[in-house]
Simulated assay, not measured.
Amino acid sequence: MTAIRGAAAITGAANGIGRALAIELGNRGCDLALADRDEAGLKTLAAEIGAARKVSVHRVDVSAPGDIAEFAHNAIAAHPALGIVINNAGVALMGTFEEIDQAQMEWLFDINFWGVVHGTRAFLPHLKTQAEAHIVNVSSIFGIIAPPGQSAYAAAKFAVRGFSESVRHELAVAGSPVRLSVVHPGGVATAIARNSRTGAGVTDNARRAQSIERFENAAKTTPKDAALRIIKGIENNQPRILIGNDARFMDLLQRFRPGTYWAPLQRKLEKMAKGT
């Protein structure tokens, strides 16, 4: 069991799940190194957490490896007992594969996948010096299933899952004190859909509004509940953390019908949209 103590580093901390994690970990006695591009949001969050915890804020673009390396250096200097790293920052991109261009796909991968890889690499040497430590890499339920219109996002989140599982097994074989969990949230009520980019080839503006509305209607889990589930997963050293009944259902469906899950899932989603 991993104890919640020392300090935690969190990317994407200014909003959504990252923000909720910062508050809940702070409530449990963790000092915090908070990273985001939204520096004003970080400062507001730090003020909300208050002086009871040591909080450092770091303006970081996780698509820039240099920013992540600097974040790790400064976070460890500010919090020598840092033992939890949560690679949470992520973005979304709406459109089919043919509607998004290569530059957009690479933009998403730089944040959603390479940001996780660089964050893991930057902090791992320090974490290995701790008596116990934990890495949390946030994938998605779309790292388990891959719906149409999510080719870039699903590809990156599947990559996070594969990378993280392999690193976890490597750490276990080496007898490392570092544990690693992969998080697969279902619909969480954050602004990720509203803040998403649209594929260069998408010409139907109404489709974006409809997609956002569908996501927000389906996103039943609060960021706080997601954060509490992740913290429980850290404490229990759970390798896979599913968040929400929707994620648990989709994971189960994929296990039973790994190659043919989409047709029954689509029917269920259509019924939900109609309220039946």
Rank of each mutant, 00 (worst) to 15 (best):
M1W: 04
T2G: 05
T2L: 06
G6I: 07
G6C: 09
A7S: 10
I10P: 03
T11A: 04
G12N: 07
G12F: 06
G12I: 00
A14V: 08
A14D: 07
N15R: 15
G18V: 08
G18H: 03
L21N: 03
A22Y: 05
A22N: 13
L25F: 14
R28V: 09
G29V: 15
C30S: 14
R37Q: 14
D38R: 12
G41H: 01
K43P: 00
I49K: 07
G50S: 07
G50H: 13
A51Y: 15
K54C: 13
S56A: 06
H58F: 10
R59C: 12
R59P: 02
D61V: 00
A64C: 09
A64D: 12
G66H: 10
D67W: 00
I68T: 03
I68Y: 00
A69L: 11
E70S: 12
H73A: 13
A75S: 12
A75R: 02
A78Q: 05
H79L: 06
G83R: 10
V85I: 09
A89D: 01
V91H: 03
M94C: 13
T96E: 13
F97N: 07
I100L: 05
Q102T: 15
M105V: 08
E106I: 11
L108Y: 01
N112S: 06
N112Y: 04
V117C: 05
V117Y: 09
G119K: 00
R121L: 11
H126C: 03
K128Q: 14
K128T: 15
K128D: 13
K128R: 14
T129D: 13
Q130A: 08
V138L: 11
S139F: 04
S140H: 07
F142C: 05
A146R: 05
P147E: 01
P148E: 12
G149V: 03
Q150N: 13
S151K: 10
A152I: 08
F158M: 02
A159G: 07
F163K: 08
F163D: 00
S166I: 14
V167G: 04
L171E: 01
A172Y: 12
V173R: 14
V178Q: 05
V178L: 05
V178P: 02
S181P: 02
S181W: 05
V183R: 00
G187L: 03
A191V: 13
A191S: 15
A191C: 08
I192M: 00
A193M: 11
R197Y: 09
T198H: 08
G199W: 00
G201K: 10
V202L: 05
N205P: 07
N205M: 12
N205G: 15
A206L: 15
A209F: 09
Q210W: 12
I212K: 00
E213S: 14
E216I: 04
E216L: 09
E216T: 03
A218V: 11
A218S: 10
K220G: 09
K220S: 08
K220A: 15
T222Q: 02
A226R: 04
R229A: 13
I231G: 03
I231T: 02
I234C: 00
E235V: 07
N237P: 02
P239V: 06
D246Q: 10
A247L: 11
A247R: 05
R248L: 14
F249T: 08
F249S: 06
M250R: 04
M250N: 02
L252D: 11
F256D: 03
P258M: 01
P264T: 04
L265C: 14
R267P: 02
K268R: 11
L269V: 10
E270G: 12
K271R: 12
K271S: 14
